[in-house]
Simulated scan of single mutants.
Amino acid sequence: MYDIILDTLKDGIRLLPFLLITYIIMEYMEHKMSAHTRHVVQASGRFGPLIGSIAGIFPQCGFSAAAASFYAGRVISRGTLIAIFLSTSDEMLPVLISQKAPVNMILSILGMKLVIGMIAGFLVDLVFSSGKKAPEPEMDIHHMCEHDHCHCEEGILKSAVVHTAQIFFFIILISFILNLVIALIGEDSLSQIILNRPVIGAVISGIVGLIPNCAASVIITQLYLDGAMSFGSMMAGLLVGAGVGLIVLYRSNDSVRENLRITGILYGIGVAAGIAIDFLGITL
Rank of each mutant, 00 (worst) to 15 (best):
A120K: 01
T80Y: 03
A120W: 00
M112R: 09
K113R: 04
D188R: 15
L110V: 11
G79I: 00
A160F: 07
A120S: 01
L81Y: 01
I97T: 06
G131I: 11
L110F: 13
L114F: 09
V162M: 13
M144V: 15
R197N: 10
S175I: 01
Q192Y: 14
T88R: 03
T80R: 03
M144S: 11
L114M: 12
I171K: 06
H151S: 14
R197L: 14
I200S: 09
T88L: 03
L96M: 05
L195N: 11
I177N: 01
C145V: 13
I141N: 07
M92I: 10
L107T: 10
Q192V: 15
D148H: 13
N104E: 12
I174D: 00
G79N: 01
K113P: 15
I97E: 07
D148G: 15
S130T: 05
K100V: 11
H149V: 15
I109V: 10
L93H: 05
M139K: 15
S129I: 09
A101E: 06
T80W: 02
C152E: 11
A101F: 06
E138D: 14
L180H: 02
S191E: 10
H163S: 15
E153N: 13
I200H: 09
N196I: 11
N196G: 11
S87H: 04
T164V: 08
V161P: 10
P102R: 02
K132R: 10
E136C: 05
L180I: 06
A101Y: 06
S191A: 13
V181K: 00
G111F: 04
I167R: 06
V103Q: 04
I156Y: 06
G111V: 07
L86G: 02
I193N: 06
N196W: 11
I116Q: 00
E187T: 13
K158V: 13
V103P: 15
K132H: 09
A160C: 09
P135T: 08
L126G: 12
A183L: 03
S129E: 07
A160G: 07
I182R: 00
L126E: 10
K158P: 15
I141Q: 08
G117T: 00
C145H: 08
I194M: 13
A83Y: 00
N104Y: 13
I174Y: 03
K100M: 12
L180P: 00
S108M: 13
S130V: 07
D188M: 14
S77Q: 02
L81H: 00
V103S: 06
D125N: 03
F170I: 07
F176K: 02
G131C: 09
R78K: 13
E136L: 07
S189C: 15
I109C: 07
V124L: 06
V199Q: 08
L123P: 14
K158Q: 08
L178T: 03
I177S: 01
V162S: 14
F122I: 02
G155C: 07
G111A: 07
S87R: 04
S89D: 04
L93T: 04
I171A: 03
V181N: 00
M92K: 05
S189Y: 12
D148L: 14
S189P: 11
T88E: 07
S191C: 13
S191L: 11
G155W: 05
G155H: 04
F85S: 03
V124Q: 00
